[in-house]
Nucleic acid binder design. Structure first.
Length: 221
DNA sequence: CCAGACGTTGTT
DNA sequence: GTCTGG
DNA sequence: CCAGACGTTGTT
DNA sequence: GTCTGG
């Protein structure tokens, strides 16, 4: 059972509310959970490690979980049925594949700049010394048709009024939430610098728009 | 019964 | 932990 | 997801 | 091509 810890203001600032513009798998990310009717802001390692995993490195690739199959997949179904969380974020990145090896990152966010809540699931893994390591996955769903040329998947979003539903209603909440898609007009996106592909880069410029590449240069290549 | 897999993305 | 394949 | 490594020997 | 680390 997840145990809510008191979080000091210092910890909030240092570990949770410090902004990041480049969150990679295995990083700690903030998440809201609800245990015994009490909501808590905590952090999880991004990339769900199934409780039965032999090594925690499995989690690095479990960063997303498809909502269509989340209740069936052995790695996710336990968490999907019982352990929901909401991951707050201003936006997210998707990579558009153009041609063979060209990938262009885009930043997605709400048109009104309001905070988003990604629907997530979380799990606990026992380290060899008995410590619990908590981790999570972001649930994905079909992207809106308006954005599908960029990427055909997107995070499953939790409208603010569905917070209680998502955090407390277990498996039943999954179908409910899928019927509450945020309209595409509430979302916006723009192309950003490929610098976001380097984990060591982390600054506000990573979410600023860039002009599409000047294709005239390709004449000489 | 035991052994082995258990995921997403996107590409071919 | 639980399911599938052998 | 992308970027970067992908090996052994033997030395510090 | 495929795996690992972030």
């Amino acid at each position: 059972m997840f145990t809510a810890e008191a979080i000091s203001a210092d910890k909030l600032t240092e570990q949770i509310l410090l902004p990041s513009f480049n969150i990679a798998p295995t990083h700690q990310i903030p998440a809201i959970v609800q245990i015994d009717n009490e909501r808590t802001l905590t952090t999880f390692q991004w990339g769900l490690i199934p409780s039965w995993a032999k090594v925690p490195s499995i989690g690095a690739r479990m960063i997303n979980a498809r909502v269509e199959t989340i209740l069936e997949k052995p790695s996710f179904r336990s968490a999907a049925a019982k352990r929901h969380c909401i991951i707050p974020a201003d936006g997210w990145f998707e990579w558009q594949t153009l041609g063979k090896s060209k990938k262009v990152p885009h930043y997605f966010s709400r048109t009104d700049k309001a905070l988003l809540g990604f629907a997530g699931i979380y799990e606990s893994w026992q380290t060899p010394d008995g410590t619990e390591l908590w981790s999570c996955s972001v649930i994905t769903t079909d992207a809106h048709p308006e954005f599908s040329e960029i990427h055909d998947r997107m995070p499953l979003l939790v409208p603010a009024q569905s917070t209680e539903l998502w955090l407390t209603q277990g498996a039943a909440a999954i179908a409910e939430l899928r019927m509450q898609a945020v309209p595409a007009t509430d979302l916006t996106q723009w192309e950003v610098s490929s610098a976001v592909g380097q984990v060591r880069n982390n600054n506000p410029k990573l979410i600023e728009p860039v002009e599409p590449e000047d294709l005239s240069l390709l004449l000489f290549l």
